[in-house]
Design a protein around this nucleic acid. Structure first.
Lengths: 232, 232
DNA sequence: AAGGCGACTAAGCGCTTGCTTAGACCCGGG
DNA sequence: CCCGGGTCTAAGCAAGCGCTTAGTCGCCTT
């Protein structure tokens, strides 16, 4: 339907600019090797290749504007080859969302569990989530942007995972406040803001961003601590 | 963190739940009266009706999945009626993005200019931006989500406006830090985070959110001040 | 060597898309 | 009363969509 520029800008030092170009692959493939490793559990290989191809295509054009022919050709198959492994285009999206959310939830749980005090737990959680959103920004973008294209049933299932992540953050803030470690007048609102901040990384981050994932993770962890820091 | 098909949530007290339904209009039309007032300058009336109809449709389905027939019928016209006023579907999106960004830029400039000290300026800017993103969440969502569907030329033009907003925030942070009012180790990163926070409101906010725009604005302004507050 | 089975393709079906065309309608000025 | 120009519609075109079908290929088992 439309020509288009591959990424949009948020406005920050990282979000801005990227002159027009690399369009498909330079940006997507930087993470594609990582992704192939991270998703190695997905078998058979042709199915995994299709999922990764779908992530690339969805990231660039969005779910709705991506054709199954595009996905198939990125995976080196004919158009009909997709349907050997997946029932429909929507199932590709569903598998991406499901696996992506499961991995994120596991990561966030582990990060929060590995620390002793409330502040370290919050910093670890926000930092780990941010790093993941940046490193796997292609997957993250599909997961965050194209959620609404899922069928009602699949959407409900994924929403459950998202609520679980939300619950984790909110409880951490409430516990920290109860223990006197945090000053949080509005725990629900603050949890919302923190997750929103991490989520939105998927929108503006791109492979050539000048800020590496780890540095962004440290920045966001610091900002999170500032948001809950007692004032005195 | 998420309910249903029509809109998605980020996860907080506001984002969650809204049982499945009103889909098209109940949610969109709450703000549509506001929008008709806010966009009254756009003439002729049929063109404005089409733009508002396009905002509604794009918000619900996204630009790519919206048909020109849907837009036309929401505006009470036949499919061909669109092309009397606009060259193409993309021009509708462009006009929405252009007008929306111009209004946001003007609002943000005015908010920052109306205050004396650095902290008040920051709070006013973030608060005003947040309130606008929440109140006109339909427009905001189109503007933030569907940017990439613009033609390369139009995309570049809108990006210029976005960079201007970014510059405003970054300079405010730098000035405040120079004057000793703020503690900001990473002004560019913090500006990015602040704008990202406001931008993302468009993703999760919906008309029936339990938190009214003004309350969210106060929360976000407070969080912004906490992010830059000197630690002593 | 024969048979069976999953992976894959060439071709194409039915449908929807953005947009065009030819013409009907409305309304104010002569 | 007629005309001219802007507004709008009914009908439809070419292109592209998701997905199916019928059949081929190549590997594994026996």
């Amino acid at each position: 339907m439309n020509p288009q520029t591959a990424d949009q800008t948020a406005g920050g030092a990282d979000g801005v600019e990227t002159a027009e170009a690399p369009q498909d692959d330079a940006a997507a493939e930087a993470g594609a090797g990582d992704l192939d490793r991270a998703w190695h559990a997905l078998q058979p290989a042709a199915a995994r290749r299709l999922l990764i191809a779908a992530v690339e295509a969805f990231t660039v054009h969005g779910y709705q504007a991506t054709t199954t022919r595009d996905i198939a050709s990125r995976a080196g198959l004919s158009p009909a080859g997709v349907y050997v492994h997946f029932r429909s285009k929507e199932e590709l999206l569903y598998r991406i969302c499901l696996f992506g959310h499961q991995q994120t939830l596991a990561l966030v749980r582990a990060a929060a569990a590995g620390e002793a005090d409330h502040a370290s737990r919050l910093a670890a959680l926000i930092g780990a989530f941010t790093v993941r959103q940046a490193r796997f920004h292609s997957v993250a973008r599909v997961i965050e942007y194209d959620l609404r294209c899922l069928s009602a049933e699949h959407h409900a299932e994924i929403s459950e995972l998202r609520r679980e992540i939300d619950r984790l953050v909110r409880e951490l803030l409430a516990d920290g406040a109860a223990a006197g470690a945090f000053d949080v007048p509005d725990p629900a609102g603050t949890a919302l803001a923190l997750l929103s901040l991490c989520t939105d990384v998927a929108r503006w981050y791109h492979a050539s961003a000048r800020r590496p994932p780890e540095e962004l993770g440290r920045l966001y962890a610091d900002l999170a601590l500032r948001m809950v820091r007692p004032s005195g």
